[in-house]
């Protein structure tokens, strides 16, 4: 399989990258890990006139923990995210999501930026990141903006990133005590899977045995973009975790989902699985929250 012809740029710094992206305009694509883009180009689904390779930019591979925030360079690979102790310990659902992506070989190439910008509805990074309330930093030569990941996705393959912008960083809040998240992916095989459904859930409790103060439920592969489940979340607020409560939230989340029939699975099945996976993800989240004494 041959790749179409294209021009290639390899900026060494973020500033340079923004400059190049700004100069080249519409027909340019940023190349991060390439695990989606190169495949789509081989299949002739995409043929950008120019690729701007971001993999040499060191600024995009840093993490930074200060001012109550945790910032993750969007150029980090899924493998790096999965293995980072700080993420394993504090954002276990994100670590989980990263370790579910593709295969070990894919995880050594695929980046957070690429996974978010390619915006596949079943992608593994968006649900846990949205559950943790992530924002993304979009940079261009004319400045930068910070966007909630909730607002970032516009449709399959579509986001609100502008052609000249680069997704450089993920911003998370430091986790408060008694808060935590879970992530569950359902696929046919044990690995190398596009999720049939994936669900991430976040809760924060007002004490080890307390009620749920905030909750976020994010559903993947059951809509054109990763979805928040508002009625599922609402069902939880102010309540003490119990099996019955989780069942209620699961049902509500299933109601919130907007699955379609496709050759990978039916809408009906996906909706039913939202229920099951929401319960399980919440369960994980509650356990994580209870053990998070910070």
């Amino acid at each position: 399989m041959l790749l179409p012809k294209f021009d290639y740029h390899e900026p060494a710094t973020l500033g340079e990258a923004c400059q190049v992206m700004g100069d080249l305009g519409q027909k340019t694509k940023a190349l991060a890990g390439g695990t989606d883009l190169i495949v789509n180009m081989k299949k002739k689904i995409l043929s950008p006139a120019c690729l701007v390779y971001l993999g040499r930019i060191k600024e995009m591979k840093k993490i930074d923990s200060s001012n109550g925030l945790f910032k993750i360079g969007a150029g980090l690979t899924a493998a790096e995210v999965a293995e980072m102790e700080e993420i394993k310990n504090n954002y276990s659902a994100l670590s989980r999501g990263a370790s579910c992506l593709g295969s070990p070989l894919i995880r050594n190439l695929a980046t957070i930026a690429g996974n978010l910008v390619s915006a596949r509805p079943a992608a593994d990074f968006p649900p846990p990141l949205m559950a943790y309330g992530a924002r993304v930093v979009l940079k261009s030569s004319s400045g930068e903006r910070v966007v909630s990941l909730d607002d970032f996705f516009k449709g399959p393959g579509q986001t609100l990133i502008a052609p000249e912008e680069i997704l450089t960083e993920i911003v998370l809040d430091k986790l408060r005590p008694f808060s935590g998240a879970g992530y569950i992916k359902l696929g046919t095989r044990q690995t190398l899977e596009i999720s049939l459904v994936n669900v991430a859930a976040f809760v924060s409790l007002d004490g080890p045995d307390g009620v749920i103060k905030t909750a976020r439920i994010v559903l993947g592969a059951v809509g054109p973009v990763p979805l928040r489940a508002p009625s599922g979340e609402k069902a939880l607020i102010g309540e003490k975790p119990s099996e019955a409560l989780l069942a209620k939230a699961g049902e509500a989340a299933a109601f919130d989902s907007k699955p379609i029939d496709d050759y990978r699975g039916s809408a009906e099945y996906r909706r039913a699985m939202v229920d099951v996976l929401t319960r399980r993800a919440l369960n994980e989240a509650i356990n994580a929250a209870r053990s998070n004494l910070n």
Binding site: R189, Q190, L192, Y263
Partner: peptide
């Protein structure tokens, strides 16, 4: 064919 590739035509992996 909708799944003429080894990503979506699923043969067992070492974990299966």
């Amino acid at each position: 064919i909708l799944n003429a590739n080894l990503g979506e035509y699923k043969i067992p992996t070492a974990l299966d």
